[in-house]
Simulated assay, not measured.
Amino acid sequence: MNHDTTLFIGLDTHKSFTQVALLKDNRGETPISYGRIDTSKSALIKLAQKIQSQFPKATLHFIYEAGPCGYWIYRLLTSLSYHCYIVAPSLIPKKPGDRVKTDKRDAAKLARLFRADELSTIYVPEAEDEAIRDLSRARETAMKDLKDAKLQLKGFFLRNNINTVVKDNWSKKHLRWLTELVLPHHSQQIVLQEMIQIISERMQRLQRLDNELIHQVKNWRYYPVVKSIQAMRGIRLLVALGTIAELGDLRRFDHPRKLMSYLGLVPSESSSGQKRRQGSITKCGNSRARRLLIEGAHSYKHKANISSELQIRQEGLSKEIIDIAWQAQLRLCRRYQRLMFLGKHRSVVVTAIAREMVAFIWAITREVGIQPIDPRQRIARLPS
């Protein structure tokens, strides 16, 4: 019997170094510390080639935790035809009495738990998908920075008893009024001019990111999905783009309930015996996608209707997708009114609507074809 058919290599990765542990797929085997290497492309390639030369008939399985260093290690090892997996740190089992934590122990623990099938692997987006996600998140950060700057200016006005005479806030007329405003002290005038300049710069930054996002999404392989889910009420371009950029390929979920659970929109539960206790939603998974869906769920408080804007978004889509969107609107608008009539809190109602929106988004995604990534392109785009 060949005892070297499978090798599990645990990698405890850090910014500058990586601790390595090796475990054979034999009963009674214990992890072996394989030393420390630099966290670099050349060092990882050399490590894989060295282990493969020592065990030429073995299949190598690399495991490491998801972290701030990204997915480049996964993409590098998979491009070399090795098996690589990234596990969720929050789902790694931990013994209550285990109070000793070292890099060697962590690497060995990863290899041992993965061999025992006790770890949950995460979905790794393609490099092109991650680039769109970074652009979408940069746009959200720019929006938050602009909002913070506006709030600081409003707070400055409140402290100094300055009332805005222009009702249309942050319009061109309002910005002109800000530049013409004269304060009693020179120091305060300097503060006002700096705040106005910051707001103007951040508005321009947001506009640049919006334009780039709209341009890039049209060349994205998930653009048919982004365009299709806009057939639903409450999901415009930025919401659709942000949701798909965060979630990636929804076809990996074989049932919409798994997608709901992935987004943390299902109620938590603590049941034992004859008692069943359900609490608030779990809030696990991607918080940004969950927030975008909850924002879109607010639009279902009105009666079902196809507005002119929604009709424009549905142009060019198949009849199956439009039918799913209309069925979603009929059900969700009716459910929103029924839950409000029963006296549920508005936040509870909106969360319930967002959870059901996920199922219709999943159904629309199944109707859309997605162009796969060429493996040769994936290898060519690896970082040097």
Rank of each mutant, 00 (worst) to 15 (best):
E309T: 09
L310F: 00
M340C: 12
Y336P: 07
K344V: 00
S318H: 03
E315T: 04
S308Q: 08
L293C: 06
L330H: 10
Q337K: 12
S299E: 12
Y336R: 11
L310G: 01
Q327V: 07
S307W: 02
R335T: 10
W326L: 02
K319G: 02
L317Q: 02
I312F: 11
N305R: 11
S308T: 08
Q327G: 12
T351L: 06
R291A: 15
I321M: 06
Q311Y: 06
A297K: 07
E320N: 08
Y336H: 14
I324G: 05
S307K: 05
R334H: 08
R331W: 08
R313W: 00
L342I: 10
A297Y: 06
C333T: 13
Q337H: 15
Q314P: 00
H298N: 14
Q314R: 11
K344G: 01
I321S: 00
G296M: 13
R331F: 08
A328Q: 09
L332P: 01
D323W: 03
K319I: 06
W326N: 06
Q337C: 10
F341G: 11
K319T: 04
S318L: 02
H302L: 11
H298F: 15
L310Y: 00
R313Y: 00
I306P: 05
L339K: 09
E295M: 14
Q314A: 03
H302S: 12
Q329K: 11
